[in-house]
Simulated assay, not measured.
Amino acid sequence: MRNLPLLLIFILLSSGCSSYKVSEDYVFPSKKDKALYIKSYNQTLKLWDIPFEETDVMTSYGMAHIIISGPKNGEPVILFHGTDASSSMWFPNIKEFSKRYRVYGIDFPLEAGKSVTNCIKLSNKETADFYNEIFEHFQMKNINLVGVSRGGWMATYLAVQPDNKIKKIVLLSPAQTFGGIENIWKVLTALNLKLFPSPKSLMKFFNAFSYYPDKIDSIFKEQLYLAYKYGNSKPRLLNMVRFSDKDLRSLKIPVLVLVGDHDIVNSEKIFVKAHKLIPNVETAVIRDAGHFLSIDQSEIINKKVVEFLNKN
C-alpha cells in the first residue's frame, strides 16, 4: 500500500457494508489480541480515581459499553471520545465532570474499546440511531454532549438532527465540523501509526497531536498503541461530511468550541464561521495545547467545560 495515493488508501480503509457480518467481533478478530487490549484498557481506567460503573446496553447495531459516573440524579453528560481512544481517554477530566453531572462515556462500536459489533460499517444515520437507543434506554432528557475530534463531529451531527433532546454541546477541536485539516502532514502520523504500528510511529503520533507528549501517562499511551496495532477499525473520514451553513444555523442551543493554539486539526480561524452561523456560541483558544487539549491542559478544559454546563 506504500505506493497508493492517499485518497485511495482512505477509500480502501473506509470500504464496507453495514449489513455484512464478518465475525463475532469485527474490531478485534483475534481473542488473544483483544485480551491484551482489554487488560490495557482496564489499567487506564485505574487513572480515573473516582467511583464508576461499567455496563452494557444492547442496541440494534451491537452491544454498547458504557462507563457511568457521577450522582444518579445529575443531568446527563455524554462523552464522545476521539478516534480509537475509547472512553478511558477522559481520565484527566472525569473527576471534575462527575461532581455535579451523571456522566456516560460510550465506546464507539467500530473502534477499539469494549463496545462490540460485527458490522463493517455504520452509516451516519445508523450511528445516530445507536446513540439514541442508548439515550432512550436510560430515559435521558436535557442531554449535554461533550466531544473531542471525531467525537466532536458526532456530537454536532446528533445536535442538528430534528426532534433531539440535546440541551448543550461542547466541541473540543471538532474534526471536519467547521473546516478542513489545518496541518495534513502532521495529521497523517495517525494514518502512519495505523498502517505501520511501532514505538517509533507512536512517538511521532504523540509528538504531532500533543503539546506535552512526554506528560501523557504511559498507561494510556500503551492502550492507544494496542488499539492501533491490533484493532481493525478504519478511519471514518468519508462519513464525516462537512456540515452545511443551514445545519450549523439550526444549532439554537448553547455551543462551546475550544481549540488548542498548537492544534494540527483546527485553528482559531474556525471561530469566524462558528460565530457567523451559530446564534449562541462561545469560543476560546487554549494556550500551550495541541489536538489532545483535554489532556494537554486538563485543568483549564475542566474549568471551562464545567462553567459552561453550569450556566442557566
Rank of each mutant, 00 (worst) to 15 (best):
M1H: 15
L6E: 11
L6T: 11
L6V: 13
I9R: 05
L12N: 11
S15V: 15
S23F: 03
E24A: 15
S30G: 11
K31T: 12
K31C: 12
K34L: 13
L36F: 08
K39G: 02
T44G: 02
T44I: 04
E54Y: 09
E54K: 09
I67T: 07
K72C: 10
N73H: 13
L79Y: 00
H81C: 09
H81G: 01
G82N: 06
S87F: 00
N93I: 02
N93M: 08
I94R: 01
E96Q: 10
R100N: 10
I106H: 03
F108Q: 06
E111C: 09
E126C: 13
A128W: 04
F130Y: 15
I134F: 12
F135P: 09
I143S: 02
I143A: 04
V148A: 15
R150G: 13
G151D: 04
G152W: 03
M154A: 14
A159F: 09
I166M: 09
I169T: 14
L172A: 05
L172I: 12
S173F: 02
G180Q: 06
N183Q: 14
W185D: 13
K186R: 14
L191W: 03
N192F: 08
F196I: 10
P199S: 07
S201A: 11
M203E: 14
A208C: 09
A208L: 12
F209S: 01
P213G: 03
P213R: 00
K215R: 07
E222N: 11
Q223D: 07
Q223E: 14
L224K: 00
L226G: 10
N232C: 11
N232T: 05
S233A: 11
P235T: 01
P235V: 09
L237A: 03
L238T: 06
V241E: 08
R242G: 08
R242P: 07
L251F: 08
I253A: 05
V259K: 02
G260W: 02
D261K: 02
D261A: 08
H262E: 13
V265S: 03
E268H: 07
F271P: 13
A274F: 06
H275P: 10
K276R: 09
I278S: 05
I278M: 06
I286T: 09
R287A: 15
G290R: 02
H291V: 12
S294L: 14
I295H: 03
K303T: 14
N312E: 12
